[in-house]
Design a binder for these strands. Structure first.
Ligand SMILES: [Zn+2]
Ligand SMILES: [Zn+2]
Lengths: 699, 699
DNA sequence: AAATCAGGTCACAAGGTCAG
DNA sequence: CTGACCTTGTGACCTGATTT
């Protein structure tokens, strides 16, 4: 830290010498250099040469972002811009603040036109910094604009002087912003989570959503048809989402309070600005700081929600998802999901005393047909034959034509016209495609998705926070009653101090449900069912942590509020992190949250998520298998699928893949940790017959 | 819609008369500058000059023909354009953003129309800013239009001043686009190489291919039958192609990433547009330079050793690295390696009390040129390698080129439009080849290779085993003296029970040497040295376990005998696994051995190993970096290299890659384990100054 | 004067249609 | 089935108006 200085010097030296800085180092402070550069730039004859040297110089200055750098960079790219591309407005310079269009380009054009006299003038210019010169120059030009127009108008229409003045003034405003865009901080689009462009119709939205809403407003009759797939409507309800469905989009717009009347124009009030900032901060905090905070936040978790914006909505359609009053939080199974069969088995059969093995085995073998849940997709995948493309109506399966999702992909992938390496093996693209579709579908239908908008969740959390405070005031920290104490007390007296056993029952119940989902998903993995039942069971068990995190992390992000430290469990209860220790080990929960955040941070698409989930499920080295090779072969295919997805999305799987691998690694640790915890915490509770499925999993 | 009529009339009027704006010059408020500018622009005499210089300048800037050329073309043809063809809005200039119409055209129009009077406007030279003046001038001209029109209207319709404002606005609307082909620049169809019609389903495709893909999407069941002739399938894989085969066509669509979710709609961003242009440029450039590259890269590939197992070298110069007396077990540094510089610093400098940071930094910065270390000994190695069988194997595989570049050469006869294989993310095959070579070389020269044949080793192990048995018979299990006991004893009495401290010194010494190697290798990674020194250091530290295992596992396999459980350490001592615990935690050694076995089990080639080592070194997610992105970019390249190598070797990297990833994953666990162990075992020993380098690594 | 938004414009792609 | 063409909706970018 303190040795930094010398270190920096070292570095400086290092970089200074060996690298070819180009003829004239770019030195911002030195006027001469600067001028030179400018001159150079405008000297047609020198053009090419200087270009290269400038570029070279640029590359040497690693960190700096400043004017010249950018300038140089643009010079570099400029040549590719053809005349078509330059908008007249750019040339005219009256354009206000287009961030993409760079003024320097204008310069260059101009240069080209007039290089002869330009270069001369330029040299004699004073010792200002280039960028500024340029911009100021721009400014001047722009000034001319309005004025001129003014003149014309006078001619044509006999204007009143009074008219003239304001006009000029107004025009001036438009004068260039010399410095880079301050780039106001804004929370993301409430509708689609994209980068928002401001507060539109009463809500922070992106430009597209704004336009969409405007168009809709203009319509005399709104009759959008919902184009959503199975679980997508829930996604819309839950939070920002994006797919091609205008009906749901519009509905969400309304949900978020967009309307003509909510319009607000003009400059932000400080208040509003602060609100924005706060909101962003909150979001960021949520994304990042969980790790460090936990320790401390456990002790001081009584901050109030100051920044959560509770959007008050007149919700006309509070139909199905209305959480019931006080506590009962509604868990919605996928509507489309025909879970009957599966769960039936899971729960009914569990009642008898079949051997543990046979329990899962039954679940596994039961859904041999299409009948069960997610299996509607191709079942017999086995060895790459994939002959049966019974995508039934899934043609649009993941039709989430997430418009705009691809912008990223387009940005990177240059000219990849060749078949990637990873495809050189037996697997065909078609197969990949099918696998991905199948898995995505299965993934979507084997997770619990609540359709409660985040605002409601937060609200509920806020409410609970108050309750919690009250409780703690009355009884002191709930946490004080440790699990050990409780058990002791319970054994001795038969009295549940705080009714936690009931809670535990709920939790266990939920766990069993989730297991059913895990099984269902696993079964949908192409080839999975070709394995022996034993192996199937082993795999599912071994991957339960991964699979369940991948299937629930989005919910987790929704249901846990960093600020208040309040978690709403999937079975619908609120807990402050501090009190949860009585039911489940706090650490476990915490770990889960942490991992959820990490996964969330990856920003995977649904498809990637699904494939990864499958990949992790099919891990032959996680457990003893009868036929590990077969499993490995399938896993390999899944890996190829994942690679393909990543490659397609960001012109190269590179970084993402590593990040994922990194998390996988840690997943294993988590699994280990959970295994121990489960044994101590859960096991004692699952002796009841109805939890035999669970028991099996804990074996 | 409604304003159309009047608008049309307006237009008609406008164009009907040759637009004599009237003698009144544009009168500006502060007009001098502007006037001048205008003058310049419209000075017929200047015109030609500017034009030509412009063109000249342009040609410097780009290779391509289109941009300005087209512009020039348009300039020339413009006069013939009739009113229909020009949008009024363009003329009027107040229009906001037509990107396709080139401003210059406007300029020219105006020029032509008005040159008569415009040129007369006085030109008082003024040394104000230039480029902008120009643009302003442009604007002026354009603004004239509407005004003028206004004037016209006045004549015709007796306007009220109040009317004026809105009118201008109205004009902008809805002028039909009569304009000629704006014809955006687009790269060709990625599927069939035809002229593309845009970005469809995430890819630039032609209209037919788009339709084809759409139809396919709509199908519920895709069962195309391949109708390809022999060889045609390869064509499809290779690049854009076209024959009647829907199966392959679809396959390629998927390949190129077409999909529902890749849909992007709406207007292009400037960015996207630029990307297109760039891509077109790149394509053009590639076509040109392809042949050259191929020629050169083919000719300079003289590297042969790819699968060397153990390189045996007769060592004449066992200079500085002389290990410990007693048993003379020879550790050889690569002869050619000019390590002096490096190690010097590592060891000499270590003596003084420089801060830790600067220590590594110095090592990092020392080898600024190519001169150092691993870079220097390419030739010797190939001589030294005795293994002839590999060569033959190699030549079978891919004749001269180790990286399989030959494939390309074989296909070079293909259509010109075919882009080389493996050309992703801007990486050319040549680049891959170079990287691989560099790394292989570096890898080879930054590891300790002993020159003892395995028989000798085994023999020695056998001998030691006897000794060991004797010892244990005499003293009982060595292991009995635990580290704790020893430390205690040593502290108390100052007596080393079994001279283990000496051993430890040896080990530490060796570790330091190895660090030097790690650094040297890292530095040879292309791009590594572009990172900041801090980052470099962080990366090296973070990857030390991986890198050292990859550089030593072969030795490890050689030096550890599973049967006897006897290990010969790299610093030349024998140990039974049981006794080693006194010096290093047995578990660590054991882990190392285990991992070495795993890696060995992969059967990687030397090249793969080298690339993998580099890949692992360049892991941006392992540690905090100032510039993770840059690092990630390089890592991606390395990843491509690895993929390429694997692909070449076994026609598909699939499984292998996955296995590797799997091991990588576990490496991280190992790293963590070692970090803890290091802290407890090693740290206490490295307080001596000469171990400061080591100390830094343990930080 | 600067910030900030409603609204407008139109380049652009999805999906449909229909004649080959 | 193919692909040219059409219709419809989207969203990037701009301007003028409105606030603070
Ligand atoms: Zn949005
Ligand atoms: Zn095509």
């Amino acid at each position: 830290m303190d040795s930094d200085l010398s270190h920096i010097i070292e570095q400086a030296l290092l970089y200074a010498s060996p690298l070819p800085l180009g003829p004239k180092p770019v030195d911002l402070n030195d006027a001469d250099n600067v001028h030179q550069k400018v001159t150079v730039l405008h000297e047609p004859s020198c053009h090419a040469d200087n270009m290269t040297s400038l570029v070279a110089a640029k590359n040497d200055l690693l960190t700096s972002e400043d004017g010249i750098h950018r300038f140089v960079e643009e010079m570099e790219t400029f040549p590719t811009i053809t005349s078509n591309e330059v908008r007249s407005k750019d040339l005219m310079g009256s354009d206000n603040s287009n961030e993409d269009i760079n003024p320097h380009i204008n310069l260059d054009i101009t240069d080209n036109l007039h290089s002869s006299w330009l270069s001369k003038v330029n040299r004699s210019t004073d010792s200002e910094i280039i960028g500024e010169e340029l911009t100021s120059a721009l400014k001047v030009v722009q000034r001319c604009q309005p004025t001129l127009q003014e003149g014309e108008l006078v001619i044509g229409s006999n204007p009143q002087p009074s008219d003239l003045q304001p006009k000029i003034k107004r025009k001036r405003n438009r004068v260039k912003n010399p410095d880079p865009p301050p780039e106001a901080i804004l929370p993301p689009c409430k509708i689609c989570d994209e980068k928002s462009s401001g507060y539109h119709y009463g809500t922070n939205t992106c430009e597209p959503c704004k336009a969409f809403f405007r168009r809709t407003l203009k319509k005399k009759e709104v009759n959008y048809q919902c184009k959503c797939q199975k679980g997508e409507q829930e996604m819309w309800k839950q939070g920002p989402y994006k797919n091609g469905c205008p009906a749901c989009r519009y509905e969400r717009c309304l949900m978020m309070g967009m309307s003509q009347n909510a319009i607000k124009i003009g400059r932000y009030t400080t208040n509003h600005k602060n609100k924005n900032i706060k909101e962003v901060k909150t979001l960021e905090a949520q994304e990042k700081s969980l790790n460090k905070n936990l320790g401390t936040s456990l002790s001081n978790g009584n901050q109030t929600i100051s920044t959560v914006e509770v959007v008050i909505i007149e919700n006309q359609s509070s139909d199905l998802n209305e959480p019931i009053a006080g506590t009962s939080y509604c868990i919605e199974l996928q509507k489309g999901m025909d879970e009957g069969n599966l769960l039936e088995i899971a729960f009914t059969q569990a009642a008898d005393n079949t051997s543990l093995e046979s329990l899962i085995s039954k679940m596994l073998s039961s859904a041999s047909g299409e009948g069960t849940g997610c299996q509607s997709s191709p079942t017999e995948f086995s060895q790459g034959s994939s002959s049966s493309f019974q995508q039934s109506k899934d043609s649009e399966l993941h039709s989430s034509q997430s418009t705009g999702l691809t912008q990223k992909s387009s940005s990177e992938s240059a000219s990849v016209t060749t078949i990637p390496h990873y495809l050189r093996m037996g697997i065909t693209l078609k197969e990949i495609d099918t696998i991905v579709k199948t898995l995505t579908e299965a993934h979507r239908t084997t997770q619990l998705i609540q359709s409660v908008p985040i605002e409601q969740v937060r609200q509920r959390q806020a409410e609970y926070l108050e309750k919690y405070h009250l409780k703690t005031q009355l009884f002191g920290e709930m946490r004080a009653i440790s699990r050990a104490e409780f058990t002791e007390f319970f054994k001795a007296t038969g009295i549940e101090i705080d009714g936690r056993n009931e809670e535990i029952e709920c939790a266990l119940n939920f766990f069993q449900k989730r297991i059913a989902f895990l099984v269902a998903f696993a079964k949908s993995i192409p080839g999975f069912r070709d394995l022996s039942l034993d192996d199937q069971a082993s795999l599912i068990k071994a991957s339960r942590v991964e699979s369940s995190i991948l299937s629930s992390y989005r919910q987790m992000m929704l249901n846990f509020d960093q600020k208040t430290q309040i978690l709403i469990t999937p079975w619908g209860r609120e807990f402050h992190l501090k009190e949860i220790d009585g039911i489940l080990p706090c650490d476990l929960i915490y770990q889960r949250i942490k991992y959820s955040e990490r996964v969330h941070g990856l920003g995977m698409t649904y498809q990637e998520e699904a494939v990864l989930r499958a990949l992790l499920t099919m891990a032959p080295d996680r457990c003893e298998l009868h036929d590990p090779d077969r499993c490995a072969a399938m896993q390999e295919k899944l890996f190829v699928c994942l690679q393909h997805l990543l490659t397609v999305r960001h012109g190269g799987p590179g970084r993402m893949l590593f990040k994922i691998m990194d998390i996988i690694t840690d997943f294993r640790k988590l699994t280990e940790a959970e295994n121990t915890i489960d044994r101590t915490y859960i096991k004692p509770h699952i002796m009841k017959e109805k939890y035999s499925l669970l028991r099996e999993f804990m074996a």
